[in-house]
Amino acid sequence: MTDIRNRKADHIELALKPMHQSQQTAGFDRLCFEPNPLPQIALNDIELQSEFLGQLVSAPFLIGAMTGGCENGELINQHLAEAAEASQIPLALGSQRAALEQHKQQDIRRWAPSAIILSNLGATQLQQSGLDLARKAVESVQANALIIHLNPLQELIQPNGDRDWNLVLEAIENCVSKLGVPIIVKEVGSGIGPTSAKKLMDVGVNWIEVAGRGGTSWASIELERNGSERERDIAAPFIDWGMDTVELLPAVHSACPSLGLIGSGGVRHGLDIARCIRLGATMTALAYPFLAPALRSTEAVIDKISVLQEQLRWAMFLTGSKSLSELRHAALQQKLTI
Rank of each mutant, 00 (worst) to 15 (best):
L14F: 02
G280D: 14
V267A: 04
E231V: 14
I273V: 14
E13N: 11
P194M: 07
I117C: 05
L332W: 07
E51Y: 09
I239S: 10
L248V: 12
T25K: 04
M201D: 12
L327I: 10
G260V: 13
G270F: 08
A331T: 13
L150C: 07
E247C: 10
K136Q: 15
A255R: 05
Q127P: 11
I305S: 04
H149Y: 08
E247F: 04
P35N: 05
T319S: 03
Q21T: 11
I41Q: 11
P293R: 13
T2H: 11
G64H: 07
S321E: 06
W207L: 07
L279P: 02
L318M: 13
P113G: 05
M243K: 15
L153T: 04
E74K: 13
L271W: 14
I208Y: 13
L295Y: 01
L327T: 12
I116F: 00
E170I: 07
A137C: 05
G69C: 01
A59Q: 08
P250E: 11
S220W: 03
E47M: 10
S297T: 12
L327F: 12
A236V: 06
V307N: 09
I89H: 02
P35Q: 06
L167R: 15
E74W: 03
G122P: 02
E173S: 15
G215D: 15
I157G: 03
S258A: 11
P250C: 07
Q96A: 06
L179H: 02
P90A: 08
V188T: 13
V203M: 12
K322D: 09
L200W: 08
P152C: 06
I4S: 12
G161I: 01
D233T: 13
E299P: 08
L248P: 04
Q24L: 11
N6A: 05
P257Q: 09
E71I: 01
I338P: 11
E101K: 11
S258W: 05
A83T: 08
E170M: 14
L169S: 08
L62N: 05
L223E: 15
F61I: 13
S22K: 05
C276E: 04
E187Y: 06
A331H: 13
H103V: 05
G214F: 04
V141K: 00
V168H: 03
M243F: 12
A315L: 07
W165M: 04
T284Q: 04
W165G: 00
P237K: 02
D164K: 10
R109G: 08
W111D: 05
K186T: 10
G214M: 07
A115S: 10
G214Y: 01
E231Q: 14
C70V: 03
A145P: 01
A235D: 08
Q154C: 06
M201K: 14
A292W: 02
V267S: 06
A137P: 03
F317A: 08
V188Q: 00
D29W: 11
A294W: 00
E139Q: 15
Q40M: 14
L336T: 13
S58M: 08
G54M: 02
I221V: 14
P113I: 06
A115C: 06
S190R: 10
L53F: 11
I12D: 00
E231K: 15
V301K: 01
V252I: 07
A112I: 03
A294Y: 00
W314R: 14
W241H: 15
A15C: 12
D29G: 05
K198R: 12
V205W: 00
M66I: 01
V141E: 00
L327W: 09
A83Y: 08
A145I: 02
I76S: 03
C70F: 04
A112L: 06
P293S: 12
A281R: 06
L62V: 06
